[in-house]
């Protein structure tokens, strides 16, 4: 029997792998449905946290030699035929599920399974492993899956408020003791006590910290995660929470337009600086409008932003969770948690 050699990953390798996807920004509306192909490899390994602690994870990865947590996000169009091949490189059973769309059933260790389904239910969804719930999902087997409404390039669902750009914020909370039990095939038997809080698999690396401003390491610099916009660049953010904690998503500089909760469009769009994000698979969709910060004095204009840029100053604000325990790592290290930055740019 072949002994398993565990992969060990720096966070850099994860983001680099994820960055290779055409992904979010490459999505264009099409007049006709097409067939979308994607292969996920279920892999495992250790990821070194900012405290130096190595934590065990499993993921839906983009190759046999990577460990993507979360798995690469996908954006498809309503009516597309989606062909997803799941290669389970591990010895344990897993599954691939998108609620209301596809359920692989058990994919045994070593098995390869191709799932074919039609994309429906425009909006934001988690794909995840529903076996051994919630442990496999928490251990990293999850990712974002978006269905664009047919023929629309700028709406979340037909008739929704419009946006110019879109991205995912996938939050997770991590109790290394639970992940370690999953590694050995046991059910966690301790109280859940998360010690790391990630956004798209990364944490903040504040200025001066190792990895700060490295797009592969720093959630405040990762292009999948940080917000970049000119005035008026309305950005749809698909917030998904495979973790267990209930969060308070908080943006500085603009209120968010709150479009959906748990896939349900809200009857009215509220402007909120805090949006509740349920745990255990919850989701919200919000638009960050990139308006001038409304309470600035003097008033902020494109000229203000151009001046800051010419002086080498970042015109930036944070997004962070307001349940502030999530802003820590390993019980301390404030700012090494689930946060990112919002950058305003001049035209």
């Amino acid at each position: 029997m072949r002994r398993r050699t565990f992969l060990k990953f720096s966070m850099a390798s994860l983001a680099a792998a994820a960055g290779s996807t055409a992904g979010v920004l490459g999505w264009q509306p099409r007049a006709h449905a097409s067939t979308i192909y994607k292969t996920f490899y279920i892999t495992e390994g250790f990821i070194t946290q900012v405290t130096g602690e190595d934590v065990y994870f499993r993921g839906f990865s983009s190759s046999t030699s990577s460990l993507n947590i979360p798995g690469e996000s996908m954006i498809v169009q309503e009516g597309d035929t989606v062909r997803i091949t799941v290669v389970n490189t591990l010895g344990t059973s897993h599954s691939f599920v998108i609620d209301g769309m596809v359920d692989s059933g058990t994919i045994r260790g070593g098995e390869t399974r191709t799932l074919v389904f039609t994309a429906r239910n425009p909006g934001s969804h988690l794909y995840y492993d529903s076996r051994n719930a919630p442990y496999n999902r928490l251990t990293g087997l999850h990712g974002g899956f978006a269905v664009m409404p047919q023929g629309r390039s700028n709406q979340l669902y037909a008739g929704s408020r419009t946006f110019r750009q879109q991205q995912f914020w996938i939050f997770n909370d991590i109790d290394p003791a639970w992940n370690n039990r999953v590694r050995y095939g046991y059910t966690p038997n301790t109280e859940y006590r998360p010690r790391y809080f990630t956004l798209n698999g990364l944490v903040g690396r504040p200025p001066g910290a190792p990895g700060a401003m490295d797009p592969a390491l720093d959630a405040m610099a990762d292009p999948r995660t940080k917000l970049d916009g000119h005035l008026g660049d309305r950005t749809l953010i698909r917030c998904l929470n495979p973790g267990l904690g209930q969060h308070a998503v908080h943006t500085h500089s603009n209120h968010m337009e709150w479009l959906t909760s748990n896939s349900q469009p809200r009857s009215e769009v509220w402007e909120k600086d805090i949006v509740p994000l349920d745990g255990d698979g919850g989701g919200v969709d919000v638009i960050f409008p990139f308006n001038p910060p409304p309470d600035a004095w003097p008033v902020v204009t494109n000229q203000t932003l151009a001046q800051a840029e010419s002086e080498g100053r970042h015109f930036a604000f944070p997004m962070h969770l307001h349940n502030e325990m999530t802003q820590t790592a390993g019980g301390g290290l404030y700012m090494f948690g689930a946060l990112t930055d919002i950058y305003y740019h001049a035209d």
């Binding site: 050699t5 565990f6 992969l7 060990k8 990953f9 720096s10 966070m11 850099a12 390798s13 680099a16 792998a17 250790f46 070194t48 946290q49 900012v50 405290t51 130096g52 602690e53 190595d54 190759s63 030699s65 990577s66 504040p206 200025p207 001066g208 910290a209 190792p210 990895g211 490295d214 390491l217 790592a329 290290l333 090494f336």
Partner: peptide
């Protein structure tokens, strides 16, 4: 037990690592 693989060059960027100049 661990081994490097793929592009996971073992740059230690953790706070506990040797290169971790504390800001």
């Amino acid at each position: 037990r661990r081994s490097s693989s793929g592009d996971s060059t073992s740059t230690d960027t953790s706070m506990g690592g040797g290169g971790g100049d504390m800001g």
